[in-house]
């Protein structure tokens, strides 16, 4: 099957950056996203992860190389609108991506842009709101929603356009823990419904919810591994200024102190099991 998104040898630098200084925001990126995948991209601030996200739906165009969505190139201006329908995006600041003054009007915004007949809209709006858990809030003013609800509204707006891919561009970084959790849960739910999810974050905890983790640093892809392979080795994330899940940190420290634990663990439960086993031995 054809990959959903292909990033081929992409280099990018922002306009105004001195060309000769060679300061690239992205360097030689090669990535493939398959249909139905749940991928996270992590990196510290300035690692280029958000820039990469914006290349995926043609908000930015590569300086060198090519980005293809389902066979359509973002370099081809006439395909750009179809690409943006296929690749929906939720941004970081909940307040700055809601256009309309009520919840349902905002979900309708994308549909209006697509020229969807009004008779179809009602159904699509209702389904999108239901999928993100905002049913019945149609007439609410965005101003009165919590941060997490606003981001779910943004997700609904994207979802109504029936995209194939949803990119969450640090969509949880401004939310409180409950909001973060709600948005991540909705993302996981949409993945189960068959959407390709690309979650950009600087939280390792969130990143490991995905099936595959891409680590970025200074405009380059440092790692691209299945989640369960990277997880036990997550201590290495420290070198790129990223946080390590505490159970992994503990596991490493205990190993360092000579505890007879298994060299890799798959999760908290396994570490508990291992600690218990080594303490019960006499």
């Amino acid at each position: 099957m054809e990959p959903m998104i292909q990033v081929v040898d992409v280099w990018f630098r922002y306009q105004g950056e001195n060309e000769s200084s060679g300061k690239w925001a992205l360097k030689k990126i090669n990535l493939t996203f398959r249909t139905g995948e749940y991928v996270s991209i992590i990196g510290a601030n300035g690692s280029g992860k958000s820039t990469l996200a914006r290349l995926l739906n043609g908000l930015l165009l590569p300086v060198r190389g090519e980005v293809k969505v389902g066979g359509l190139s973002t370099a081809n201006e006439s395909d750009l609108w179809e690409i943006r329908r296929r690749v929906g995006m939720v941004f970081q600041n909940p307040d700055n991506q809601i256009v309309a003054t009520t919840v349902e009007d905002d979900v309708a915004f994308g549909l209006e842009n697509l020229g969807v007949p009004r008779s179809e809209m009602k159904d699509r709006i209702e389904r999108a709101l239901a999928a993100v858990g905002l049913s019945g809030m149609n007439a609410r003013e965005p101003h009165h929603l919590s941060g997490g609800q606003k981001q779910r509204l943004a997700l609904a707006g994207v979802l109504a356009m029936s995209p194939d891919v949803i990119v969450l561009d640090e969509a949880t970084s401004m939310l409180d823990p409950q909001g973060k959790n709600d948005v991540s849960q909705v993302a996981a739910e949409l993945h189960r419904m068959g959407k390709t999810i690309i979650h950009i974050t600087h939280s390792a905890r969130e990143a490991f919810r995905a099936e595959r983790v891409i680590v970025m640093n200074q405009g380059e892809v440092k790692l691209d591994l299945p989640s369960e392979v990277l997880y036990p080795k997550a201590v290495m994330l420290k070198q790129w200024g990223l946080a390590v899940p505490p159970e992994i940190e503990l596991h490493q420290r205990l190993l360092g102190k000579g505890w007879p634990l298994s060299p890799t663990i798959s999760g908290k439960e396994e570490l508990v099991e291992e600690i218990w086993r080594s303490l019960s031995e006499i």
């Binding site: 929906g88 991506q97 994308g110 943004a154 356009m161």
Partner: peptide
């Protein structure tokens, strides 16, 4: 940011 978001939503 709003302009970017509107563009991303096909406006």
């Amino acid at each position: 940011e709003l302009a970017l978001a509107m563009e991303a939503r096909g406006y």
